[in-house]
Nucleic acid binder design. Structure first.
Length: 278
DNA sequence: AACTGTCCCTGCAAGC
DNA sequence: TGCTTGCAGGGACAGT
């Protein structure tokens, strides 16, 4: 499940292997992947354009072009970007292919087709990609300060997990990292944000930063379903450091006393240790 | 502001 | 063995 650390890992790969490349040809397979605009808009917007940077905001990959337009790629659940030599057989569910001027191909592969590819005009982002315009603070790209977090937490009265997952507030945290962050901060997922002592706010702030940075260093999390891989098809290793996610029923590694529980919060599976998280 | 429910889609696993 | 059902989940959106 690509969240901030996985998307950041892909971004770093793109910075090395896509930036500076000109797109010589574009193929669009499934129209659902380009549903926001059209196949023709993707082909016209990309063909002949050079990728000049690789950016990220939350879970959105943003590739500015020398034409002034920008490519937005969202992997959602099962989207992958892969770079490989041209002319090779393509994986099942390859929906968009960008031929690059170095002979490589960049493939957008996505079995569940929740992901999307858009070419948009960044000066008109509020109209063309309203969700992107409304995105909250990215803890890694923008930096989330303790006073900013304090304000977010104190000005709402929601469960902490819901707050962490709200992309309009903090951008990039998904289900896995929300659980890992709250475990590290020793706070329960359903705990109301406005109820935190200053010390807990500081722990949450630190945990957001530490968990995301550690996960980026490990190249993200690749679960058993192997859904997330980097540009070259390699998985990350942060799943080995998960303390609660996917460990329901196991003894808590942190305290050695509690048993990790799995509950449903806001329709999402949620994992925590009832002994160390309060 | 905040809650709930719904939808989108496929692959895999569990249950019969 | 072969079917059906349920689940996974990011995020927009509608309704309350």
């Amino acid at each position: 499940m690509p969240e901030l650390p996985e998307v950041e890992t892909v971004r770093r790969g793109l910075a090395r292997f896509a930036v500076g490349r000109r797109v010589t040809q574009v193929e669009v397979g499934r129209l659902r992947t380009v549903r926001r605009t059209s196949a023709q808009a993707i082909i016209d917007g990309l063909t002949g354009a050079t990728i000049v940077a690789a950016n990220r905001r939350g879970k959105y990959l943003l590739l500015p072009l020398d034409t002034g337009d920008e490519v937005m790629i969202h992997l959602r659940m099962t989207g992958k970007l892969l770079v490989s030599a041209g002319g090779l057989p393509r994986p099942l569910h390859t929906h968009v292919v960008m031929h690059l001027d170095d002979g490589n191909e960049m493939l957008f592969v996505d079995p569940r087709t929740f992901g999307e590819v858009v070419v948009f005009d960044p000066t008109n982002v509020a109209v063309e990609l309203p969700e992107l315009a409304r995105l909250g603070i990215d803890p890694v790209a923008d930096g989330l300060t303790l006073p900013q977090l304090r304000h977010l937490v104190r000005s709402r009265n929601r469960g902490l997990k819901q707050l962490l997952l709200d992309q309009h507030l903090i951008a990039g945290i998904g289900n896995i990292y929300a659980d890992e962050i709250l475990h590290k901060a020793r706070l329960r997922p359903e705990r109301l944000s406005s109820s935190l002592a200053p010390r807990s706010e500081a722990m949450l702030h630190r945990a957001i930063h530490d968990v995301l940075v550690a996960a980026i260093v490990s190249g993200g999390s690749t679960l058993r379903d192997n859904q997330y891989v980097d540009l070259f098809g390699d998985g990350g290793s942060y799943q080995e450091d998960h303390r609660v996610y996917g460990r329901a029923g196991e003894r808590c590694i942190t305290c050695g006393r509690g048993w990790v529980r799995r509950i449903i919060v806001g329709q999402r599976s949620t994992h925590f240790c009832p002994i160390c998280q309060r």
